[in-house]
Design a protein around this nucleic acid. Structure first.
Length: 482
RNA sequence: UCCUGAGUAGCUCAGCCGGUUAGAGCAUCUGACUGUUAAUCAGAGGGUCGCUGGUUCGAGCCCAGCCUCAGGAGCCA
């Protein structure tokens, strides 16, 4: 018996007349003769040809959709149309049966909603196989991009002390018996008795710790899970998601934008090369789906065209103030088609405004910079007021078609006085962040960084519509199953 | 959390104005066929109509509350 070979390697070799052993899961068993076998190494199934007239009937009955089997046989040029080679089986062993009455997957198209309910089995579909292979490639490409540039991969803590930076609701971490929480004389929760001796929560961002690393190692990045206890119920939010947060000493906002754009292009290009077959499958899946939609709702570019377009064009860079001017003059604003009309300077852009800029006006990724100070975080570097006295910060958001904000970042405020003043204004407790402020006290330097939502990136590259379909086991309000 | 829509067989869905025994395709099972590509043909089995309560002679359908899902919004990555 020969050693097991993965289907991807076998199909790539294209060899015939060799003895092989393959193992995988049955996707379909047609006409008692043809097994479509998939082992997850590639989107393609391997066709196994069974000589059913000379095979034990009991064994044939056990070859059902979902069963795990091992096959010995000889590679041959296929007589059929759908594949170039196939395995003529000489010996089949069922490693794990799959009761067809109970196995929920059928050799047909299932709805994504249904598959989400059986997330433990959806890996076995072509669509999710492709998605998670692409996700893996993107993840690897992120590391490779930064490693090629001398960045240090820094592990920032998952458990952090209190929610000082105010980046959304955090999950509490405690060792208390929740039926009997210790309290102080005044009736408040006595965190001194808790595991860490203080209130703690799951991280909402590794940025502040990342900055500490950058102020010694120059260029660092984090890539890990992040948690938000927001009651968000959308196609682009999760309670647990993965974020990439680079932080670079001696970078200004332009360097920051250059890096972010280079990163996005690098990983998209990498996926197009490494996962061509998967992306072609996802591309076709979308095209089939579009056929059912009215003409007006169909997208102008296919998935593959959209990705290539993204590589071939510079992202449009403009300031918040310029964006407001464009939006004010836009047709939907004048015709009052926006739900929220753009009137003055200073309020945050609504989703519909971002979509207009990205999908209608520029028709490509857009980087918005220099937002009003009042709608952004305390740590962003303050610009001098403009001629009209308007105050902005060196923020940048990258907006992608269909996704919205995929990157949010800024040049950081490195001037101690300005930073402390802003923290006071916003009610951020300076004492709790003494360690953060120390970087501004000792050898402070200009620096910048950003956060890239990894699932939003996977969403864009795979062309999927719901973020819950691009992470293996999504966590969202009212759901932590699997 | 707000707005809109949905929940009927394992899956996808139909079910008229409230009226007898709730249907179809696929899947499953049985048989036939055997170079198929979501195989084909014939037959069979399969239902707490999301849950709770109400209106009514009678509720899958009307009303109320709740649960879950989808899309959009907010928060954001």
């Amino acid at each position: 018996m020969s050693q097991r070979i993965k289907i991807k390697a076998l199909l790539e070799s294209g060899k015939t007349d060799i003895d092989v052993t393959v193992k995988g899961w049955v996707r379909a068993f047609r006409q008692n003769r043809f097994i479509a076998l998939n082992d997850g190494s590639t989107n393609s199934n391997l066709q196994i040809v069974v000589d059913f007239e000379n095979t034990d009937a009991v064994l044939l009955k056990r070859i059902t959709v979902g069963a795990a089997i091992s096959v010995n046989g000889k590679m041959a040029a296929s007589l059929g149309q759908g594949q170039s080679v196939e395995v003529i089986a000489t010996d089949i062993e069922v490693l794990g049966d799959s009761d067809p009455e109970k196995y929920p997957l059928q050799p047909k198209k299932h709805s994504l909603e249904f598959l989400r309910e059986i997330a433990h089995l959806r890996f076995r579909t072509s669509t999710f196989g492709a998605i998670f292979r692409v996700r893996n490639t993107l993840s690897f490409a992120v590391h490779q991009f930064f490693q090629e540039r001398g960045f240090v991969y820094l592990h920032t803590p998952v458990i952090t002390q209190s929610d000082a930076e105010g980046a959304g609701e955090a999950f509490h971490v405690t060792n208390f018996d929740l039926d009997n929480v210790p309290r102080t004389d005044t009736g408040e929760v006595d965190y001194k008795q808790d595991f860490f001796g203080t209130a703690t929560n799951l991280t909402v961002s590794g940025q502040l710790e990342g900055e500490l690393g950058a102020m010694a190692l120059s260029d660092i990045y984090t890539f890990g899970p992040t948690f938000r206890a927001e009651n968000s119920n959308t196609t682009r939010h999760l309670a647990e998601f993965w974020m990439i947060e680079p932080e670079m000493a001696f970078y200004d906002l332009n360097d920051n934008m250059d890096l972010a754009e280079a990163l996005l292009k690098y990983v998209i290009k990498y996926a197009l090369e490494k996962n061509r077959e998967d992306l072609e499958f996802l591309n076709q899946r979308l095209l089939d789906e579009e056929k059912t939609k009215p003409q007006a709702e169909r997208s102008e570019l296919s998935l593959l065209d959209k990705l290539q377009f993204c590589l071939d064009n510079n992202f449009e860079r403009l300031t918040y103030t310029e964006a407001i001017d464009i939006l004010k003059d836009s047709t939907p604003n004048k015709k009052k088609k926006f739900q929220y009309l753009v009137e003055g300077w200073g309020t945050d852009l609504q989703s519909e405004h971002e979509r207009y800029l990205v999908e209608k006006h520029f028709k490509k990724p857009v980087i918005l910079t220099d937002y009003p100070k009042d709608i952004k975080a305390f740590y962003m570097r303050q610009n001098e007021p403009d001629a009209q006295g308007r105050q902005t910060v060196r923020a940048m958001d990258i907006l992608f078609p269909g996704i919205g904000e995929i990157v949010g970042g800024s040049q950081r405020e490195e001037r101690l006085e300005r930073l402390e003043q802003r923290m006071d204004e916003m009610g951020i407790p300076k004492e709790e962040l003494w360690w953060y402020l120390d970087t501004r006290r000792f050898g402070s330097a200009p620096h910048a960084g950003f956060g890239l939502g990894f699932e939003r990136l996977v969403l864009f590259v795979t062309g999927m519509g719901n973020i819950r379909d691009v992470i293996p086991f999504p966590r969202f309000p009212k759901n932590a199953e699997f």
